[in-house]
Design a protein around this nucleic acid. Structure first.
Length: 254
DNA sequence: ATGGCCTGCAACGCAGGA
């Protein structure tokens, strides 16, 4: 089973890239973030024509998540149970006995911002929920845009980013809190090139200059780690004309 | 040179992203 995550930064704009990539890489499950699409406008027909079932939870202008699957999905849930949030950031579904959890973790804006406090509160609620979810579904994969660079190796300029949003100690502690539920960062299960990133700033020719961060992740519970044969970043999609600022992350499970 | 770009919405600039 090939599972993937991609922040598309507007599904409407990125739909041609998405369809081309689905045809080429044929992932079995794809989690999308920042669809920025209301449910009534979701491009269901185009995605089904590509051979995928799809579920989605969106809103106007901001946020929005979706899960595409070549196999049937069951037990679809949106949001974090018991955590009131107007922002559409979480969607979960079960595919062939694997619990797929798609997340768009808040950005936080800056460590002084109210949005940063929201991010940390949100992460605490997510962790509490997943602690129970992983008991109910031992084969669990947490895929998405985490908006956290877990270590300095995931940052193009660690000194410049030290203590800044996406790299601050409380955010990294929250990431470790997810790991401590019994999950592993699939990307780090395998040897990887230095300066492996999943996001590059649109400004300053960030992609060409490799000014990036690794903030999109696939965490796997232990039973899935045992079956994971690889994890890579599909950098080619960031090099296209009019790209998303994020590249997909793809993990293969036996 | 501490900002540069992209998106959606709306409206002739803004918020938000990271």
């Amino acid at each position: 089973m090939r599972i993937a995550t991609w922040n598309v930064n507007s599904l409407k704009v990125r739909l041609p890239h998405l369809l081309e990539w689905l045809a080429r890489d044929v992932p079995d499950v794809v989690c999308l973030q920042e669809t920025k699409t209301e449910d009534k406008s979701f491009p269901v027909a185009e995605i089904e024509a590509a051979g995928y079932s799809v579920v989605y939870s969106g809103q106007k202008t901001y946020n929005g998540v979706a899960i595409l699957s070549r196999r049937p999905m069951s037990d679809v849930t949106a949001g974090i149970p018991g955590y009131a949030d107007e922002q559409k950031r979480v969607l979960a579904a079960t595919v062939d006995g694997v619990r797929i959890v798609c997340v768009y973790i808040p950005n936080g804006q800056s460590v002084e911002s109210d949005k940063y406090r929201y991010k940390l509160d949100w992460l605490a609620a997510l962790t509490t929920w997943l602690r129970a979810e992983i008991v109910a579904h031992p084969k669990l994969a947490l895929l998405g845009d985490y908006n956290i660079a877990p270590a300095d190796a995931d940052v193009h300029d660690p000194a410049a980013w030290a203590g800044q949003v996406l790299c601050s100690d409380p955010e990294r502690a929250a990431f470790r809190g997810l790991i401590d539920l019994g999950m592993s960062d699939s990307f780090r299960l395998f040897p990887q090139a230095d300066r492996s990133f999943t996001w590059w700033d649109y400004r300053m020719q960030g992609f060409r200059r490799k000014l990036g961060l690794r903030i999109d992740h696939i965490l796997l519970s232990a039973p899935l780690v045992a079956t994971c044969t690889g994890c890579r970043i599909e950098v080619a999609l960031r090099a296209l004309e009019r790209p998303s600022d994020h590249a997909p992350v793809i993990a293969d499970l036996a």
